[in-house]
């Protein structure tokens, strides 16, 4: 059962990593505008200037 001494810290560490990622994303304001984020993903803003000018 010595494997537990590796697996449990790994499990908790991964969980903490997820928690930290979530808290970071929240602090970065990623949940402020959920509808807008969905639309921004499909906008052509990141294309080179000449291609993105269609709107």
């Amino acid at each position: 059962m010595d494997i537990l001494f590796i697996l449990i810290p790994v499990a908790i560490g991964l969980g903490l990593l997820g928690l930290a990622a979530f808290l970071w994303s929240m602090k970065a304001g990623q949940y402020e505008d959920l509808d807008g984020a969905a639309w921004r993903a499909i906008s052509d803003d990141d294309l080179p200037e000449d291609e993105g000018k269609r709107d």
Partner: peptide, 13 residues
């Protein structure tokens, strides 16, 4: 939301 994240993390582990 933060509380929820912490409780969720703790509950899972």
């Amino acid at each position: 939301l933060k509380g929820m994240a912490v409780a969720g993390f703790a509950a899972m582990n």
